[in-house]
């Protein structure tokens, strides 16, 4: 970046080149998702097939997570929070049903 570049802060999920991970080795873990992850994944697909949410809405929900939550939660935990938020937003379920 040139020194005089305006300071734009990329969104949390917009990770390309992010300096904070510059020296982080890549965890070679390549295990498939656990039972929790596979279940969330399947539910996401079913809701998409039934036209109740798009993958773009899923992403928007993930991107809306506060930065500290985004990085603290596991991959499918982010998905789950997004799916729940979108289902509540659309009135498919009520927030109380998840409490």
């Amino acid at each position: 970046m040139p020194d005089d570049a305006p300071a734009h802060v990329p969104a949390t999920h917009d990770l390309g080149g992010a300096s904070r991970f510059r020296c982080t080795p890549i965890d070679p873990d390549d295990a498939p998702p656990d039972a929790f992850g596979k279940r969330v994944d399947a539910i996401r697909q079913i809701l998409a097939q039934k036209k109740l949410m798009t993958v773009d809405e899923l992403r928007r929900g993930i991107e809306s997570l506060p930065p500290e939550e985004y990085h603290a939660l596991g991959y499918y935990e982010r998905w789950l929070r997004s799916i729940a938020a979108i289902m509540i937003e659309k009135g498919v379920i009520a927030a109380e049903e998840l409490r």
């Binding site: 734009h8 969104a11 917009d14 390309g16 080149g17």
Partner: peptide
């Protein structure tokens, strides 16, 4: 353009090419 600085949005253009 930096729509994320103006409010809720979802864009697929990564920051580093803008």
């Amino acid at each position: 353009d930096w729509p994320e600085e103006r409010g809720p949005c979802h864009i697929r253009t990564p920051h580093y090419v803008r």
